[in-house]
């Protein structure tokens, strides 16, 4: 078999790339080893700050996993506030598409750990503030009557999109943006032609906005999209963070219990 110099050069190139990739995979250990070894369980904030740095520079899943682990240790070693921050940080690094339940459990735990007044997780008694609900209801009535003037619709667009997120999916067209866009046609008495299902869906949205906790069972299912209850115990964060708090010290490339150090 005849091997050309080009082929040899190609093989050498591939070999070097593999070595480079191998070096990259050792990134967490190599780059952060020194700071990892300096971590002290008595100073949980050090863990959090290091986790933030790792997360900021992470490019691979291993790197993200390392960041989440260090965040988790920070949360478990620190107070409730640090635990809440850790839960939010880990949630932000979780793939919502592949692990939606974990994401929801982490955000729920964060909410439960929040001791400040007016924490965000409560039953969706009033999914949207009443003032904003009135704007939406006026907009929907105007839309159906063929009077969707820009001033009416603008009042809706002025609402904080985050506020609207619990009810986005109930708007005609499936989102607030599509609703606003389509409303431009229905002015000066031109009414939208809506199917019975579309009208019923709109009415459910109105009921959800107005009825509070007295809303019907079916409207509640529509509003929450039949999502399951996520259970989380804020006193059992280790399982949620997937971290063993006993092994909080980095030595010789592994996480060890402080007592084990020096006693191999």
């Amino acid at each position: 078999m005849k091997v050309s110099p080009c082929t040899i050069l190609l093989l050498v190139g591939i070999f070097m790339l593999e070595q480079l990739a191998g070096a990259m995979s050792d990134f967490p250990i190599n780059q952060w080893d020194q700071r990892l070894q300096q971590l002290d369980p008595a100073r949980p904030m050090m863990y959090f700050e290091l986790a933030e740095d790792i997360a900021e520079q992470a490019q691979t899943q291993d790197q993200r996993d390392l960041a989440m682990r260090v965040f988790g240790l920070a949360g478990l070693l620190g107070d409730r506030q640090l635990a809440r921050s850790a839960a939010l940080a880990i949630a932000s690094m979780t793939d919502r598409a592949s692990e939606p339940t974990r994401y929801r459990r982490l955000t729920a735990a964060a909410a439960l750990l929040d001791d400040r007044p007016g924490r965000s997780i409560t039953m969706l008694v009033q999914p949207v503030k009443l003032e904003d609900a009135h704007r939406i209801l006026d907009g929907l009535a105007a839309y159906r009557s063929g009077r969707a003037t820009s001033s009416v619709m603008r009042r809706i667009t002025q609402i904080d999109p985050v506020q609207l997120s619990p009810v986005q999916h109930l708007f005609p067209g499936g989102s607030i943006d599509r609703f606003i866009e389509s409303s431009q046609v229905y002015r000066r008495g031109v009414r939208p032609s809506m199917s019975t299902q579309e009208l019923a869906s709109e009415l459910r949205l109105e009921e959800a906005l107005l009825a509070g906790k007295s809303r019907s069972f079916s409207t509640d299912l529509l509003l929450t999209r039949n999502r399951p209850l996520v259970e989380v115990d804020p006193d059992s964060l280790a399982e949620l963070f997937r971290v063993d708090p006993a092994r909080s010290t980095w030595r010789d490339g592994t996480w060890q219990a402080p007592a084990e150090i020096g006693n191999p």
Partner: peptide
């Protein structure tokens, strides 16, 4: 805790 996590009537 569970009731705090519930997002609506059915979850409650």
């Amino acid at each position: 805790v569970r009731s705090g996590l519930a997002e609506g009537i059915v979850q409650s």
